[in-house]
Design a protein around this nucleic acid. Structure first.
Lengths: 239, 239
DNA sequence: TCAAAAGTGTTGGGATTACACCCATGG
DNA sequence: CCATGGGTGTAATCCCAACACTTTTGA
């Protein structure tokens, strides 16, 4: 019985009441063909509500941190390991899960849709959903999605995390479309370019992407060093 | 046995491993006589490390949310109930507490030092410490304090929470000193006044506080409605 | 009358907004 | 050669930072 291991290590806190702890990840991706921000969902595996759409999650195991748990489940379902993943918020209402007293730590993740392993995706029945047509999810997961989306909108103004959603080489039109989709409003093309260039974050490549126009749009990558610097100290990216 | 109640409600998740969950609150106060930002600590009541300085915390009980737990312990130790309290971050490293596998949800609180009940403070052996001379704390509590302080500095630029640390009636010199203490840098007096007035958050009273000068400084209170509005939508308060 | 803290405005520079046309190319 | 999307510059405005003197009054 697995709770035995736990009991053994509890030398001190007799009489205190342990609680089940889960992690649930809100995983964002940007489909730049459709120009849509999406989140990754799967069908819940356990009762109650088995088979219903759910955030991707797992119970936290005795010998792993919550971070490790969130990384583990993300790796299992997408094959990805070097991704942007951070803790968002802990949901602790006593009645949030009718199955038991379960707390959930929500994680916020940004991934590049193209990178993930399609076989794994199919294997586990995960699916990308447009953020404006998320189905009814189990428990309080719809609330988690709403709050994660707010977090994304706030965050993108302070840190250059938008890039986590784009492929390594991307064009400015793609970048602009991403920000428009996140902010849910049209942005001025010229001012956006001016601002993004002024950050010194972009490295222009020689190649062009001609998949969307005859003229072709220059590809860029971002300067890893500058990126880290800005991630650390933040910036102000109001538009 | 209290864990029985828990077992009873766990109809579904057999074989999953529950974890002890605690809350720990980083409680900030501003002593405007000393012009110092402080945090409230107490001496830990349980082994291991009983008697050492610690953040104020408690285990989360089976029938309370983590928020309720944090409010409960704050009320017990300070007598205060209408305070600014929000969840900060969950600490989940497996080895963070040698006593057992315990997660801790850190809470961030801002209170008005004068409001709290001195008798309770004395009764529980709590004490205010300058943020620049925090003693060694149990477990990872020093880390929590550092991160909470960073959070305060970030937050104060986006939301008008500074007021939570001041008495209901306060003077502009007090407010400026508070911000200087939080930002840890001198601020331009005239620009600060201009900016704070432009927010439309302050209501000037007829009274003056003459405790710090012969001329006396006008007392202000803040406009609750405007405050709520700005708390909701945020602002930019770079200085 | 003077010391000590409170209060008050202006100006220059940098950033942000609004806005319209030329460019390159494949079909 | 033309339709389509990619790319560029400037002027007006707003916001922010820097900066020094006057006011009040109790001792």
């Amino acid at each position: 019985m697995s709770s035995k291991a736990y009991q053994l290590s509890n030398k001190y806190y007799y009489g205190s009441d342990p609680i089940l702890v889960a992690v649930d990840s809100i995983i964002f991706g940007f489909d730049y063909h459709e120009e849509k921000l999406k989140i990754l969902l799967f069908k819940r595996l356990v009762e109650p509500f088995s088979g219903q759409w759910s955030l991707i999650g797992s119970f936290v195991k005795p010998h792993e941190s919550a971070d490790a748990s969130a990384y583990r489940i993300l790796k299992e379902l997408t094959g990805l390991s070097n991704v942007f993943l951070e803790q968002l918020k802990c949901y602790t209402e006593t009645d949030r899960d009718p199955g038991a007293r379960v707390m959930s730590i929500a994680y916020f993740s940004l991934i590049q849709i193209e990178d993930h392993n399609d076989e794994l995706i199919n294997l586990h029945g995960t699916r990308w959903f447009d953020i404006d047509s998320i189905p009814d999810l189990v428990l309080d997961h719809n609330k988690m999605v709403r709050e994660a989306l707010e977090h994304l909108r706030t965050m993108v103004r302070r840190k250059p995390v938008g890039f986590e959603l784009l492929p390594n080489h991307f064009t400015l039109p793609q970048l602009i479309k991403l920000y428009q989709e996140i902010y849910q409003k049209p942005l001025d093309d010229r001012n956006f370019r001016k601002k993004i260039h002024s950050l010194g974050l972009l490295k222009k490549l020689d190649k062009k992407d001609k998949s969307t126009s005859k003229k072709g749009a220059f590809l860029y990558k971002f300067d890893q060093k500058k990126y880290m610097e800005l991630l650390e100290k933040g910036f102000n990216f109001e538009l």
